[in-house]
Design a protein around this nucleic acid. Structure first.
Lengths: 196, 196
DNA sequence: CCCACAGTACACCGATCGGTAAAGGAGTGT
DNA sequence: ACACTCCTTTACCGATCGGTGTACTGTGGG
């Protein structure tokens, strides 16, 4: 869409600083002055590059979206089987969470920007839509008879693991283990998927 | 703890307005002036009652915590069996989400207030600790052989359902259905709980 | 050579932020 | 009558908010 713009060196630094600060301290709590200072750039340059704070927030979310989706795709490509591929988004969280201990940036953004018409809000919801669509496609490719149901279940597990990460418990392993059982059950022959 | 204070009429109005505004628009995005205006109260009164914005945020979270825990306890008391009681926190979300479409106030607060030493942060994490402890007790009371594992799984499902509620999908029914299967499996005789 | 462009430096804007000062009105219990 | 608490009004504080204007510097390409 708009990533065709080459983006200057200063632009990258701004986006990098904005990423750390927005994710680490919250979007509303971080001012443009702080971002400019952390990226060693004048506020004027920031506004020349991004136009407004809102647009910078959108760029921040889009950048994270790209990195995350790339990681997921790589994990899918490295999966040993179609069944393991369904679990790839969950498995990708293992590495992702190492550097992102503050939960899901999109969920956090939704918490801070309730206005559904806000462009950043739209980006965040689209990301989740992408994920459930991906789960559905992977489930179908793995031969699941009810891809919709499995995809919704996996999305719940995914978000649950993400959001409970901030607590000390190791919920990711539990979620993956549980998800693996669900995928196995949903792709084996047919019939029982744990009640109806 | 501190709810022994009777709290004046103005105090209740302030807390009510703060609840709606903080939950609906985000904590950082809402200023004390706005809360005072919405509760028909002077800013001076607000500060006489709560001392600071941070303490008001804490009071806001504690009030929600009390309401939520009360609802959960009522749902547990109304459960038809110990096994159904384990699902009570999930079932309670059915009614709760009607009036709280913006996800979990505690998770949202954690997203906005990253500082672990912030009193509101502490309240939010304590709430989640309460929930997983409750799940464990309920699981044990229902005769589950591995209450820890089941509790963690149910917590993931709970948080997943809560956070995906903001998207259009009806994930709550899916989560409850899935949770019911897990509880049944974990409480029936013994052996297989879907791999180890 | 010269122009366009990216970036800097710095001052400035109105608005809002969380929080306070001082003084007084209204109701209650003693 | 008294003091006490609750709440009000109005004004104010320094700091920060997102955002702009203007003039200057450096650099690279035609």
């Amino acid at each position: 869409m708009s990533e065709t713009k080459p983006m200057t060196a200063a632009g990258h630094r701004i986006l990098g600083a904005a990423g750390e600060l927005f994710y680490g301290r919250g979007i509303t709590a971080v001012g443009v002055d702080l971002i400019a200072e952390h990226s060693g750039v004048t506020k004027r340059t920031l506004y020349n590059q991004f136009g407004s704070k809102d647009q910078l927030v959108v760029a921040y979310l889009e950048e994270r979206e790209q990195r995350w989706q790339l990681l997921v795709r790589e994990t899918i490509a490295a999966a040993a089987s179609p069944i393991e591929a369904v679990l790839a988004p969950l498995e990708a969280l293992r590495a992702w969470n190492q550097n992102n201990p503050r939960g899901c940036a999109f969920i956090n953004a939704l918490a801070e920007l309730p206005d559904p018409t806000h462009p950043a809000h739209v980006v965040a919801t689209q990301e989740k839509q992408w994920l459930i669509d991906l789960f559905r496609e992977l489930a179908a490719a793995a031969g699941c008879s009810a891809p919709d149901t499995l995809a919704t279940r996996l999305l719940v597990l995914h978000e649950g693991a993400l959001v409970t990460q901030q607590l000390s418990l190791d919920t990711l392993s539990v979620s993956i283990e549980l998800a693996r059982g669900l995928v196995r059950a949903a792709t084996s022959t047919e019939s029982q998927t744990a009640s109806a």
